[in-house]
Amino acid sequence: MNAAAKELPVSYDLSKPQEDREPYVGSVLFFKHVIFTVTLLLILIPTTLSIYLFAQVRSLNRQLDTAGSQLAAMQEQLPSTAPEGGEPTPAEPEPPAAEVPAYTELYPELYADDSLRGTVDVDNAVYLTFDDGPSARTDEILEILDKYGVKATFFVVGANEEGDLERMQKIVAAGHTLAIHSYSHDYKKIYASVEAYLEDFNQMFCQIYEATGVKPQIFRFPGGSVNSYNVGIHQQLIAEMTRRGFVYFDWNVANGDAVFSKIQPSSTLTANALKGVGTARRAIILMHDSSAKTTTVEALPAIIEGYLEAGYSFAALTPSTRSVTFSYLD
């Protein structure tokens, strides 16, 4: 055999015995077949997918065309909204808005400016508040507050003693906040309805304004914003007073001078009031300055000193003070 014959590629002669043939796997022909097969698959798979997707798109288009035809047929079957003259019929009137309670129209002058409501929130602040005055106790409390240079808030009731109107004037002149509690303080009467509450509130508002020239902007519900007397209407009351711009305050500390009918010793009242030290970031303390609350007056200096020593500052409540309120009852 010559040199040219030796360089010819190896072929597989099937006439030779199997043991004389070169192995197929791993041969040049094997790799040619692999390459051809892979190439063929790379062509066939995308082509097959394209054909399938094209068929699906055409099917969806036919379904859309059919649905469009059916919708058009249904619209043609609907009765026309226009009369024979061709003019469209008027649109159906909108349902009436929710009925506004009649009490919102009462006392049109009974409104306050709430543009700064709750914008002030001071840490370690204490607000001394006194309910049910004024009385002779109020005079004594004003002297103590003046001695310590402390401002407070007085939620007053209707004047029922000689000199009460003058006491309201003294509260304002000393730089304290004069606020509304109730004119009659008759729970059953004022919580009989929203209208009854507004009537009582307006009486107290007018009395304060006539006596002092001040239009009070803050108030405290007798018994707090949620109590056993107003449980049926407390949400309406709060919503209406808030709508009118007034700001109400409950409390988070109490000296306990109204918990029992018996007058409590001043030491007990002091201990109760100082429970806010270290526990209340800002303490709104409930106390009372009605005529019988002599031990409230006696306890006041120790209460003031206790909070001063703990690093608290004192202030009177204003509409801008962030309020402390009780939670709604569902």
Rank of each mutant, 00 (worst) to 15 (best):
I190A: 05
V194W: 02
A196T: 04
A196Q: 02
L198G: 00
E199C: 06
E199R: 05
M204S: 03
M204T: 01
M204E: 11
F205C: 00
I208R: 03
I208F: 12
E210Q: 14
E210P: 04
E210N: 13
T212I: 04
V214H: 07
P216K: 06
Q217C: 11
F219A: 05
P222G: 08
Y229D: 03
I233K: 00
H234K: 12
I238Q: 13
E240T: 15
T242N: 14
F246I: 07
V247L: 15
Y248A: 05
F249I: 09
D250G: 03
A254V: 06
D257Y: 01
D257E: 12
A258S: 14
V259Y: 13
F260S: 13
K262G: 13
I263K: 15
S266P: 01
S267R: 10
T270I: 05
A271C: 10
K275A: 00
G276V: 14
G276L: 07
G276Y: 14
V277I: 15
G278M: 14
G278D: 05
T279E: 08
A280T: 04
A283E: 08
A283T: 06
A283S: 12
I284L: 10
I284P: 00
M287E: 15
M287H: 10
S291E: 15
T296I: 09
E298V: 04
A299P: 03
P301C: 09
P301K: 09
